[in-house]
């Protein structure tokens, strides 16, 4: 489950972004920047503040993306690629410039939910986790509720399906999309922060390891629905945990093949989900 948290956070944000009709493949870079900032902040202020700092820097970086695609109407995939490069480059260069090969920072400890944690099997899996896990689960619930039961959710979904109608209703697509993009940025930044303060305790160059891209695949696999994304996240979380299991067992399966398995799995699964559920109709376009 620990491996699922960063994927779930990033995918949750990207889900909201894509429902608004925008694809942001730059979250890979935002994850990396979030991780570095969290590492620096955690040393002085502890892991909790570091998670917040990761989210904050995620908002800042995604704001650049928002300006480009919403205001300038730049091509979303190309702008996203640039943001991914920017984030990866900045985090790697920043890490060297700050000369921060310092010690490991303390990580977030798991919290047992009273009583529930003692349930057999599921108790440990669901109720003995670090707090960002609970935030993620609650966040998915809030996102689902917001999409279904608030005017904001209705407008957001309309932005992804028929932007002209949103404009016709006298609302600003730009504001909604920009907000969604920055929410997605906050989620990705927090996901990056969790890689450091929830898992590794240190920053390593390239530690985002394609998780931003995987999050995009999760959203597609989950057919742009909250339950679908939750299920896909669990599958990927399990696949990632498998790496550790394989290593622990000392099995002879080559390390790289285990690392590559989730990517191959996604490629094989994507065709199967075609037609089920619905993708936002204007995903990737400005919806003119």
């Amino acid at each position: 489950m620990r491996a699922a948290v960063p994927l779930g956070l990033a995918a949750m944000g990207e889900l909201v972004v894509q429902r608004a009709g925008v694809i942001n493949i730059g979250i890979e870079g935002i994850l990396a920047v979030g991780a570095l900032v969290a590492y620096v902040v955690a040393e002085s202020f502890g892991p909790g503040v570091a998670m917040g700092a990761g989210a904050a820097v995620g908002i800042v970086v995604s704001a650049v993306f928002a300006v480009l695609v919403v205001r300038v109407r730049a091509h979303q995939v190309i702008a996203g690629t640039a943001i991914a490069m920017l984030g990866l480059g900045l985090s790697a260069a920043g890490h060297r410039l700050l000369d921060h090969s310092g010690p490991a920072v303390s990580t977030i400890t798991a919290v047992d939910v009273p009583l529930l944690a003692d349930l057999p099997v599921l108790g440990r899996v669901l109720f003995a986790q670090q707090w960002p896990f609970y935030v993620m689960v609650a966040g998915l619930g809030v996102v689902a509720w917001t999409l279904r039961r608030t005017t904001l959710g209705v407008v957001l979904r309309a932005c992804g399906d028929a932007p002209a109608a949103v404009r016709g209703a006298g609302r600003s697509i730009d504001a909604v999309r920009a907000g969604a993009i920055m929410f997605g940025g906050a989620c990705a930044g927090a996901a990056g922060a969790f890689l450091v303060v929830g898992q590794a305790g240190v920053f390593v160059e390239g530690m985002s390891a394609g998780r931003g891209f995987i999050a995009i695949a999760i959203v597609a696999l989950g057919r742009w629905s909250v339950p679908g994304v939750a299920i896909a996240t669990v599958i990927f979380g399990l696949a990632s945990s498998l790496q550790f299991a394989v290593q622990a067992l000392g099995a002879t399966v080559p390390y790289n093949l285990v690392l590559g398995a989730p990517y191959a799995l996604t490629l094989l699964l994507l065709p199967l989900t075609r037609g089920a559920g619905s993708s936002p109709r204007v995903l990737g376009s400005h919806g003119e």
Binding site: V64, A79, I83, M85, L86, L88, A93, L97
Partner: peptide
Amino acid sequence: VPADLTVVVSAGAILAVLAYPY
């Protein structure tokens, strides 16, 4: 000076090209 800064410059170049018409 870290060589990774050149990646940042490449990214900046793409962003500048995207923003240029606007």
